[in-house]
Write a protein that binds this DNA or RNA. Sequence first.
DNA 1: GTGAATCATCTTTTT
DNA 2: GATGATTCAC
Length: 721
Amino acid sequence: MEETGLRSAIPMEQLTDSQRKAVFHVDGPLLVLAGPGSGKTRVITTRIAALINSGIRPHNICAITFTNKAAEEMRERVAAFGAAGGVHISTFHSLCVRILRRYADGAGVKPNFSIYDEREQLGCMKEAIKACQIDTTNFAPARMLAGVSSLKNDLETPESVAEYADDYFTKNLARIYASYQKILENNNALDFDDLLVRTAFLLRDRPEIRIELSNRFRYLLVDEYQDTNHAQYQIAKGLALEHGNICATGDPDQSIYGWRGADIGNILAFENDWPNALVVRLQENFRSTPNILELADILISINMKRKQKALIPTRERGADVVIASYSDEKAEAEAIAGQVSRFAEQGGNLNEIAVFYRVNSMSRVIEEAFVQRQIPYQIVRGLEFYSRKEIRDMLGYLKLAVNPADDVAFMRAVNTHPRGIGKTTLDRVGVYASGKGVSLCEAAGQAGGIDSVGKGAQAKLIGFADMIEGFRKDVNGPVAPLMERIFTESGLVAHLESTGEKGDTAIENIGELINAATFYDENAESPSLLDYLQMVSLYSDTDAYDSEAPKVSLMTLHAAKGLEFENVFIVGLEDGLLPHERSRDSEDELEEERRLFFVGITRAKDNLHISYARERIFRGQYLRTVPSEFLYEVGYSPYAAEDDLEDDEFDESFSQVDTESELGGRKFRIGELVGHPKFGIGRVVEFHNMGASSIVVVRFNSGKTKTLMVRYARLSRIGAE
DNA sequence: GTGAATCATCTTTTT
DNA sequence: GATGATTCAC
């Protein structure tokens, strides 16, 4: 490393005092509490450069990011300082894969383990529940999977759960958990959570390995610390235990992954964990205009479980935040598309625009409006490419070649296209395999000994097993050529070629996959199919987002974390959507939804446009919506605004929210949503029908419960029946 | 053994 | 309204 070059690469004079402190505090624990737009990313990358500058080898530095995309960006920035190679920058999950492969024995895994995605996990879970002879109506696979996941994030094992389980549900969950683990183990597979659990246990149980790792990673940086779960927390702590050189950065106000086991407590406990920690607060905001920050501040201040914290603007005042309502979600999308078009006509770069929404399915209307106006856009979404059938088929062959114990991959591969091996045959192979205690692939190879299977099917099974065996020989070379080979030899191309247009796009997609593999082969240190597969399993389409491309970015509020845009649209500010209805029952979850909105707001640099639709299509039909309570909280009164709709060019037929006169018999049902001019939105808890003096008890979203005289309370009925 | 047709279920956010 | 599981006809 050329020291002078590096030194001059750090623009120290541009750093604030707090930033400088965070950058140059080299040894010992450091906590950077960084508000949105405080230049945190820059501080981290500059800090890495400063560490190297002070004589620490890049090889001894490990930075952990929340997403692969963030890792990639950090690599680029560090590379710009001239310190590219050597520094380990990855997510927790990728780091764990590397550790588990390196110390497979100590961790009790085989290095060629498969990593199961959500779909595969679900399949195993269904099997696990069946094996326990438990009815799936009360123990839905998806719910059980979520349950097991949160147990794993808390580092609970099936045994530890069984020990404390004292109710019917938990006891069964423990059994299901055990059975699920057994299935994964038989398949030589780990799920996402296992990667963390195994690593955490490895660090806990094998101090000599832990110390070896501390020598390797002598400086640890963990970004987005507020979103670490217990397992990740233990891993970070374990890695830093020896030397205490841990730098954690984050912002409790931006914690939006509580549902995934993330614990804000981790960041709040940092100072207890590391008593000699230096705490640096970055409160200045260099990103957004005061107009935007004031709104963000009002909103986040409503959260009760929070340390009060300032959001200090540094920029000049700019444009006011716009809060708009539209007649329905199509009008909302068209209005945005219209504004984007005008922006583009005036020569604006579309990569300065983003649209955020709460749930992925909301992207569709926006897309349609953009397509209509021919506006280029990119969707930053979790699933897309790798969930396509043909891609999963190819990956099935590949996974099977690396890990023949993987029965899920076997079933996937064997069923890619008709090859004369049908359901009945596979059932019989399954019986044989479990009887002998071998994998399906192995059983297929021994098909000659399965008497229940006919001669013709036996030959086909053996042929299939031989083919896979042939692929296995090339597992250690580059990936792309093997993919090509599998594609033709498996007969998949021939099959797709014969299926017309659909087959053609499938072939193109696989071509795309092979291209990506070629890129991998050229860039990986030592390419192998195993490494490729384990990386690909952790890669999501979110990571394919291109911030340079002149396209509007569409993404969920969750995906927006860590990004910034000149112009931001946040859509669907409606009750049940943001806050999401599944967050309705707990105050903690409501606060998390509020933080989510806060994250969205603080992504905007110059212009922020927040909107809601008064009607939205849901399950095929239009339903009246209720404006989000968050809008009231930031001082906006939707109903007043809706009275004066002249400015709303997209509104043709707006009708005011149901008024008293429309309430008919003025009877309310328990659970019904009502609006009150002063108390806001609430649900009817009790209704006593006493004619003209009927009484209604309403629990408002503010948490207050009020008993009201129907005659006097100006209650409006909201939402459609 | 295969493919089409029907029925049922469920619908947050992500590594 | 989309996806998956099951059933039915060939």
